[in-house]
């Protein structure tokens, strides 16, 4: 079972490359924010899985929880930029 979780974790970390690709390449900043958000949700699961692999899941939950909460704040802050400012291209024209 632990081996299964390990492989799942590996699969998950490989999947993580895709949102990362989006946030690295992603044409607009919003794409990047979205990619980061997606990485965040995968990371949360991954953290718990690592906890299982270590056999100490009770220790990793707190991290995952904090992670889930704070990821939200980061995304909110990043998107807040657009609430107050116009997009990049308009700023460049200005």
């Amino acid at each position: 079972m632990d081996t299964y979780i390990l492989y799942s974790a590996m699969a998950l970390s490989v999947f993580m490359a895709i949102p990362l690709y989006r946030s690295v390449v992603g044409p607009t900043v919003k794409d990047r924010i979205m990619g980061v958000n997606a990485i965040g949700s995968k990371t949360t699961v991954l953290l718990i899985m690592i906890g299982f692999i270590f056999g100490r899941v009770d220790m990793f939950i707190d991290i995952a929880l904090a992670y889930a909460l704070l990821n939200f704040i980061a995304v909110l802050a990043a998107s807040r930029y657009f609430h107050k400012r116009k997009g990049l291209y308009q700023e460049m024209d200005r």
């Binding site: 079972m1 632990d2 081996t3 390990l6 299982f52 692999i53 270590f54 056999g55 100490r56 220790m59």
Partner: peptide, 16 residues
Amino acid sequence: TIPILRHGPVPEGGGI
């Protein structure tokens, strides 16, 4: 394992 002392006995099969 992580640097936090374990309280109970080690679970069977827990943790690779």
